[in-house]
């Protein structure tokens, strides 16, 4: 008790000052119109700034949740898109069961892009419906093909792998070729097997051809940045810059073709 009294005696002067200062400022703000306006404006600016900051922080906390919900919505949209064709404007009635492609959102746990043979690891596995030989894409490009699978993880052979060959076509020229990586720049891939009679132009868009059961037709891959015809060769050397940056992806989608099994069985009967 004595301590409290001592404290009050020592600081009472400052306390009285603060209380009276608060009183006079509240009087000023209440009864002087000019100061009142300035006060209201300033507090508005301050509270808006504080609110914005708080919203920003709150946004960060919800980012994960928002991301996964957006990813799910994207997956659904991609699924519809594959069904109707990428450039189709009409929207026929559809049923979930009748769709050929399933799109599964996935998270990328680990990836390399600097080696000669690059791989990715997905945080999902067979428990989430993934299977071997399914294609992995992002919103604006392709990532690779699932090679190995465990219950909760999947290993993907990246398009930046010396063994990776993806069947692609040129949008305007209409020709088919194979997309391979020469092991140098992760943004630049080579499109090979385009014969020299095709009219290939710089800037042409490279799409997936849809000939394999892995990727649907018409997925964006990249654009042609240089076309060369070596002397005495019948085949172009085409450099393609991919739209997505394989070194900076953390989310993707796995595409599951429900007819793949059937198509493979049918094609196997030829032999």
């Amino acid at each position: 008790m004595g301590n409290i009294l001592e404290f009050l005696v020592k600081t009472g002067y400052h306390l009285i000052f603060l209380v009276l200062l608060g009183t006079s400022i509240s009087l000023i703000v209440r009864y002087n119109s000019a100061q009142k306006e300035i006060f209201i404006n300033s507090t508005n600016i301050l509270s808006t700034a504080v609110n914005n900051k708080l919203d920003e922080w709150e946004g960060y906390f919800q980012l994960d949740e928002v991301n996964s919900s957006l990813q799910n919505q994207n997956a659904l949209l991609l699924q519809k898109m594959f069904e109707y064709g990428i450039n189709s404007t009409s929207a026929p009635a559809y049923h979930q069961d009748s769709m050929v492609f399933d799109v599964i959102p996935v998270k990328i746990c680990n990836s390399t892009f600097t080696l000669k043979n690059n791989n990715l690891t997905l945080c999902q596995g067979s428990n989430n419906g993934l299977e071997k030989d399914l294609g992995v894409i992002t919103e604006n490009g392709i990532l690779g093909i699932i090679r190995n699978i465990s219950p909760n993880r999947a290993r993907v052979m990246s398009i930046l792998h010396s063994q990776s060959i993806i069947d692609c076509s040129l949008k305007n020229a209409g020709a088919h070729g194979s997309l391979v990586w020469n092991g140098k720049n992760p943004k630049i891939l080579d499109l090979i097997d385009i014969p020299k009679h095709i009219n290939v132009k710089k800037g042409d868009t490279v799409l997936t051809s849809g000939f394999s059961t892995i990727f649907p037709k018409g997925l964006l891959v990249g654009k042609v940045i240089s076309v060369e015809l070596p002397k005495g060769s019948n085949i172009f050397e085409i450099s393609v810059e991919v739209f997505n940056d394989p070194s900076a992806v953390s989310y993707g989608y796995v595409i599951k073709n429900k007819m793949a099994q059937e198509q493979k069985l049918l094609e196997a009967q030829d032999e």
Binding site: L20, L21, S24, I25, I28, N32
Partner: peptide, 9 residues
Amino acid sequence: PGVHAGAML
């Protein structure tokens, strides 16, 4: 109201 009081304080 308050301006002189605050300044005096």
